[in-house]
């Protein structure tokens, strides 16, 4: 298979697109963060969705940890991500011990 190098202008456009999805232009930082957290359901987590949100957070940390493990730099960030992952695992276990999700009153 022939590997082609992506032209820089195409790559830059792709990066701009990703950034526009992350921080929409025309919004202040606070509004952008508010939108991000609202879309992720993290501004006000419903009582019966904590387990699910912990799982999602674990996935986000693991994705980043995967990237960091490929890099020989960022050792500090790697250690801190691993620590956070351990915290999330403990929280997940504690939530599981609590039993089946309680229905919101």
């Amino acid at each position: 298979m022939k590997i082609r190098v992506i032209p820089s202008e195409v790559r830059e456009e792709a990066e701009r697109y990703i950034m526009s999805k992350t921080y929409q232009s025309g919004q202040s930082g606070k509004q952008q963060v508010w939108s991000l957290l609202s879309e992720a359901g993290l501004v006000d987590i419903p009582t019966d969705e904590f387990s699910e949100r912990v799982k999602e957070a674990k996935k986000a940390v693991m994705d980043r940890l995967g990237e960091l493990l490929e890099s020989t730099t960022d050792i500090e960030e790697r250690d801190s991500a691993a620590y956070s992952l351990a915290t999330l695992k403990k929280l997940e276990t504690a939530l599981q011990r609590k039993g089946t999700p309680r229905t919101a009153d």
Binding site: T22, V33, L36, L37, A40, L42, V43, I45, R53, V54, E56, A57, A60, V61, D63, R64, E77, A81, S84, L88
Partner: peptide
């Protein structure tokens, strides 16, 4: 959880 999401999404 909000902080963790922002931290790793941004990274």
């Amino acid at each position: 959880l909000a902080y963790t999401y922002l931290r790793f999404k941004e990274a």
